[in-house]
């Protein structure tokens, strides 16, 4: 056979050197896709979305109010009109649970957002400045962290009265320390990376390096911690309300609902079941999301 017809030279334009076959996607998109592939995480996300939607719109659509009393229908078991039954004052437990979820989510998200922002700035400054400033700032953190958070909250409750604001202040007073520590550690390690040095040699200001390169790259680790802080705050509020120093009546929170129902626990077990079940669902879904995010951010899972 003639070799000249067997092998034909290709045109130079058809040369396929180091061709990138993979679809180009941004980091965020990549993480999102991996998050969605994780069934448990997706389940947690859908569940939390449902709970949030229900808490926001469900309470609006409900024909009952959280404090509307009706002594004729006290301590009813769950049925068609009152899905979760009624309590000792004849209030609709379903509506009260929805309000409780609202309160819990509000406390969880607001306190986490505040902690996140304060911790971000504080830890970022400490990590970036380094040296004595860092030492001083971290010792302040240690002191705040050494005093039990419960103590602050109870003291603040005593001074400002028991309402959402004081719980939020109490949780936020030392809650940011954890975030600050993580941000500091991230920034400390990232600022010695060569891309940070390269930006510095190019003439970047410190602020630009910090916001454009360091923060963007430490976001992954941060988001994971932050999603775990939400259930902590929710649990803290529920606990405070349960021992009787949190949200006061007639406002509803999941903790107060459980506390109200605990006296009749043996007679009307459904009254305590619903608020506690709701706490569990919220905390489960957030844990699933956090775990899913952690796996999605881990570069070893990149496919």
């Amino acid at each position: 056979m003639d070799l000249k017809t067997l092998f034909l030279p290709l045109d130079v334009s058809q040369k396929n050197d180091e061709f990138i076959a993979m679809e180009s996607k941004s980091f965020a998109k990549d993480v999102w896709q991996r998050f969605c592939r994780n069934r448990r995480a997706l389940f947690g996300f859908v569940l939390l979305s449902c709970i949030v939607l229900l808490a926001v719109f469900g309470a609006m659509a409900s024909p009952y109010t959280y404090d509307g009393q009706d002594t004729a229908i006290r301590n009813l078991p769950p049925h068609a009109q009152h899905w979760f039954g009624t309590d000792k004052f004849g209030r609709d437990i379903f509506t009260r649970v929805l309000y409780g979820v609202r309160m819990s989510l509000l406390i969880g998200f607001v306190s986490t957002a505040v902690n996140f922002l304060v911790g971000l700035v504080y830890g970022g400054v400490a990590g970036y400045c380094g040296g004595y400033a860092d030492m001083l700032m971290m010792r302040v953190c240690d002191i705040l962290y050494a005093i039990p958070a419960m103590l602050y909250i109870i003291l603040i409750m005593l001074i400002f009265g028991s309402h959402v604001g004081s719980i939020l202040i109490g949780i936020c007073l030392s809650g940011w320390v954890g975030v600050a520590r993580i941000v500091r550690a991230q920034v400390l390690s990232l600022k010695e990376r060569e891309y940070a040095l390269a930006a510095y040699v190019l003439g970047s200001s410190r602020r630009r390096i910090f916001f454009k390169h360091l923060l963007a790259n430490s976001m992954g680790a941060l988001l994971v911690t932050v999603t775990l802080m939400i259930p902590q705050a929710i649990f803290m509020e529920a606990f405070l309300s349960f021992i009787g120093i949190g949200i006061s009546a007639p406002m509803a929170s999941l903790g107060t609902l459980a506390q109200d129902a605990k006296t009749y626990f043996q007679v009307y077990p459904t009254q305590i079941l619903f608020p506690i079940g709701m706490i569990c669902l919220i905390i489960f879904s957030l844990s699933f999301i956090s775990k899913g995010l952690e796996e999605a951010f881990d570069p070893r899972n990149r496919r």
Binding site: R193, L197, A198, G203, A216, N217
Partner: peptide, 24 residues
């Protein structure tokens, strides 16, 4: 140093570490 930085540059050793993974 800005005017000097414009004309004095540096190439780093590790091409895996010297580019910010979040930027195109």
């Amino acid at each position: 140093l800005l005017p000097v930085r414009r004309s004095m540059q540096m190439i780093f050793q590790d091409p895996y570490a010297s580019l910010d993974p979040r930027c195109t």
